[in-house]
Design a protein around this nucleic acid. Structure first.
Length: 340
DNA sequence: TTAGCAATAT
DNA sequence: CATATTGCTA
């Protein structure tokens, strides 16, 4: 009896150890995490029962536990040498920096989700539940960045497509309710063969979408930097502190964003003080925020100083900081007007 | 090396 | 058509 209890405790401890280890990958291995967590819970309960009521019969116990086991073992075969660590060389002496890097890219992984619209989770930028270690501004060495990128694009990766029923703990971590879970899930990670730079023609990256969260960070950075037209990709990247996000990606996003804001400059709500933010440019009325953008095409060359310096601009709410959700079509009007 | 733009791919 | 990636140039 004692043996079983001890055994159970031992396994429990081992499991908890494992849980701590995969904590970092919680987002990427939601099922794994969940399974382990639940198993731990279940076992704890067993332990309690065991302590309380003496009736426990070893065989019975095994049987009962069997219900929890198979699932678990699919993902995590139990070993006795769980703490062996031989196979987990990566985290031998918990190197803090490495840990941080991982969590950081994890954050990014979370943000880079392939379901732009679906993933509107309740919390928002909550940064959530998890006690993710403080993200230190730590300048990520380029090598580190590359490493993480490599990881992100290739290796570890949770097969989270399979619906395992018991996601008891609540929100589906990564895979929003099945709708349209078309092969995008594997998009970034599955990467079978891709990225294997075989024959050096793996070329095109997997297409990754900017999640609302990520975009929000982007916008924040933009705002801090004084607007889309003065912000530079690198600065943005540093400000966003999203690891695994490359300059090129930001550059691209910025490009698109600029084009977008140029086309449909939206005066952003706040109509309370809706003083017409209009200014005359080349004979046409243009919403002020777009002034800078428009100036480009109307020959007001250096648009650098149009925006206030970083510090002062912080509180301002510029239209160009927000993506045009519902374009008022002013610009198109402008075009037609100009044509006429 | 980076920013910006254009071409191209999804 | 919208958006992401790559290529090219300054």
């Amino acid at each position: 009896m004692v043996y079983y209890a001890g055994n159970l405790r031992f396994h429990l401890a081992a499991l908890e150890d494992e849980l701590r280890k995969i904590q970092v990958f919680r987002r990427e291995l939601p099922i794994c995490y969940e399974v382990v967590t639940q198993t731990i819970e279940a076992w704890k309960q067993k332990l309690v029962e065991k302590g309380g009521v003496r009736e426990c019969n070893p065989a019975l116990l095994d049987d009962e536990m069997a219900s929890d086991r198979p699932l678990l073992e699919e993902f995590m075969p139990l070993r006795d040498d769980v703490r062996g660590d031989d196979d987990r060389r990566e985290r031998k002496n918990d190197t803090d920096s490495e840990e941080k890097n991982k969590t950081e890219w994890l954050r990014s992984a979370q943000l880079w989700n392939p379901f732009p619209d679906l993933n509107s989770r309740q919390d928002d930028d909550g940064d959530d539940d998890d006690d993710s270690p403080p993200v230190v501004p730590e300048k990520s060495s380029s090598s580190a960045a590359k490493a993480t990128d490599a990881i992100a694009s290739g290796s570890l990766h949770p097969e989270l497509g399979r619906g395992i029923g018991n996601n008891a703990s609540g929100k589906p971590l990564s895979n929003p309710s099945g709708s349209s879970s078309s092969g995008y899930v594997e998009g970034r990670m599955a990467c079978k063969g891709v990225e294997k730079n075989q024959a050096g023609s793996s070329h095109r990256k997997q297409r990754r979408c900017w999640s609302p969260e990520l975009h929000r960070q982007f916008l924040d950075a933009l705002q801090d930097l004084g607007g889309p037209h003065v912000a530079t990709p690198k600065q943005i990247k540093e400000l966003m502190k999203v690891d695994g996000l490359t300059n090129d990606e930001i550059k691209s996003h910025l490009q698109k964003y600029r084009l977008h804001t140029r086309r449909s400059p939206v005066a952003q709500d706040d109509s309370t003080t809706a003083a017409p933010q209009l200014v005359v440019v080349g004979g046409i009325w243009v919403p002020q925020p777009d002034f800078a953008a428009a100036s480009g095409s109307v020959s007001l060359p250096p648009r650098n100083k149009i925006y206030a310096p970083v510090a002062t601009i912080r509180s301002r709410r510029l239209a160009d900081v927000e993506p045009p959700k519902s374009p008022p079509a002013i610009s198109s009007l402008a075009h037609t007007i100009r044509a006429a």
